[in-house]
Amino acid sequence: MIVARGLERRYGGRRVLAGVDLVVQPDDVVLVTGPNGSGKTTLLRILAGLVAPTRGELELAIDRSRIGFVGHEPLVYRELTALENLDLFGRLYRVPERRERIGMLLERFGLWDVRAVRVSEYSRGMAQRLALCRALLHDPDLLLLDEPHASLDAAGAALLDEELARLARGRALVVATHEPERLSALAPRRLALT
C-alpha cells in the first residue's frame, strides 16, 4: 500500500532524512527505530502527507483519507472538550454514525467519564489517549504512530499495547518507537534509521 524509494528531506541546508526505502503491505507492522534526530518523525510526517520529501518517490496505493496519524502532540484543541473535538474531526472526516463511533472510542480508551472536560485540564496521558481516539475515528487502513508510548504511564502503556495488538488485525501499522521490544508480539519488521 506504500512504496517509498530514496526518501530524503532537507530543512535549509540540513539533511534530516537521507535515502529511506520502505514498502508497507496491508497487515504489515513496521517498527521505525533509531536515535533522536535520525528522522523518524520526518519519515512519518512524509508518509502522512504533512511534509513533502525533498527527493525520492512516494507511491500511495491508499487514499489519504484512509490514513490515521498520531504525532508527538495530540492534535486536538485545548479549549474544547473531548466530545467537541471528536465531533469536529468526525465531521471533517465524514465519519458515518459519528455519535455512536465517538462514544465507543471514548469508552474503549477510558475517557467516557471525562468527555465533557476541556483538554487543557487533561493529563498528558489522557491527551495521548484522546489523540488515539482522534486517529481511529475514521477506522483507517493505515495507522502511523510517532512514539505512542512516550507520555503514557505503565497502565496506559499496557492498555496501548493491547489496543495495538487489536488494531494490527486488518490494517497496517507504522510505529516509530524507542521501545521496539514492547511490540515484538506483533512479529514486526524493523526499519532502523541512522
Partner: peptide, 12 residues
Amino acid sequence: EHGVLDGLVLAP
C-alpha cells in the same frame, strides 16, 4: 497549540 493545524490538514 497541540499541533491542531496538522490535524486539520490531514482531514479529507
